[in-house]
Amino acid sequence: MTIGLSTYAYFWQWSDHVPRPLSLIEMLADTARQGVELFQICDYPPLESMSDAELDEVRGEARRLGVRLELGTRGLRPAHLRRYLELAGRLDATLVRSMMRSADSEPTLDEAEGFLREVVPEYAAAGVTIALETYEQVPTPTLVELVERIADPHLGICLDPANVVAALELPEAVVDLTAPHVVNVHVKDFAFTRSPGWVGFQLTGAPLGTGQLDRAHEVRAVRADERDVNEVIEHWLPWQGDAETTCAVEREWTAHNLDYLRSERT
């Protein structure tokens, strides 16, 4: 198992909410500076419009820094997944996280199965795995059924227990249901807090160990070390009022979460 960082760990730092957003190369450099050897470029729109020369620069810098890459996108249409297979080949990535739905595609279970039966053999031939993420728009049993229908080791699940809470699924139950099929984990803690005025609740991120993620249960069920499943740090950090404060807290959460995951291995 390798601990990694995601573009979601730099969500605010590369956003247009800050005066000078970080570039992808700068995120890679910061990842390496923190002693992390894996970076997941996840839901990062500029990636799809990069030229071959720009992609080669990213690959070259990742190699120089000793950082392996994974990719993340949304949707299962074959043309789109083939594009990400091309990107994976260009960037030496061996995993592409995706979601069953995208902004312009909401396939049925049977349609999703057809899409994946068309492209999974191509991913397998290239040595690249597709990881379908757990999230509120698709019931987790449906996602598991889809993976079990295909029954290919190059198709699995990206486990994120925080995402399913919005669908009133219990995170611990989702961990147990998906564990045999997990090939990637998005690690973030989460917590409910009362909304201002005490009307309703907010579900936001939290530093690991301070929220409602049963991390010990996740570790026992997934067995990431034993099964060589990479765990990638993300954040759900609310805006903190200004760019400087928000980015500072984002960096603090990353440092804390890295220490937390590393401490599990000692």
Rank of each mutant, 00 (worst) to 15 (best):
A126Y: 03
N163Q: 12
R149G: 04
D152C: 13
P171N: 10
V175T: 13
V174R: 00
P180Q: 07
A167W: 02
V119T: 14
L155T: 12
V174Y: 00
E113A: 13
V164Y: 08
V185E: 02
L146N: 04
D160R: 00
E118Q: 13
E145F: 02
T129G: 06
I150S: 06
L170P: 00
L155E: 12
E113M: 10
A126K: 07
T129L: 04
E111M: 11
P121G: 13
G114W: 01
V175N: 01
L143F: 08
V138M: 02
L116C: 08
H181E: 03
P139M: 04
L168D: 15
C158D: 12
Y135W: 14
L146C: 08
H154N: 15
Y123I: 05
D189I: 02
A151Y: 10
Y123C: 03
P180M: 10
D189P: 01
Q137V: 08
I150K: 06
V144A: 15
P139E: 06
R117M: 12
L146I: 07
R117T: 13
L116V: 07
F115N: 15
L159M: 09
C158T: 13
P171W: 05
K188M: 10
Q137I: 07
H181I: 04
V165D: 10
F190R: 02
H181W: 07
F190D: 03
P141C: 06
N163E: 11
L168I: 09
K188W: 08
E111D: 14
P139Q: 05
V174D: 00
L146M: 08
L170Y: 14
A151R: 14
A112P: 14
T178E: 01
L177C: 09
A131R: 02
A166M: 12
V144T: 14
V182D: 01
V185M: 11
E113K: 14
D160F: 01
E136W: 13
V147E: 01
V187T: 06
A131N: 07
C158N: 14
V138Y: 00
E118P: 08
V187S: 00
E113T: 15
A131S: 13
T142E: 15
H181P: 08
T140D: 02
L132C: 09
C158L: 14
L177R: 11
L168H: 15
V187H: 00
V164C: 11
E118F: 10
E118M: 10
P121Q: 13
Q137L: 12
V147L: 05
I157Q: 08
E172Y: 05
E148M: 09
Q137D: 15
I150D: 06
T142W: 11
A166F: 13
L143I: 13
Q137N: 13
E145Y: 04
E133W: 01
V165H: 10
V182Y: 00
T142L: 11
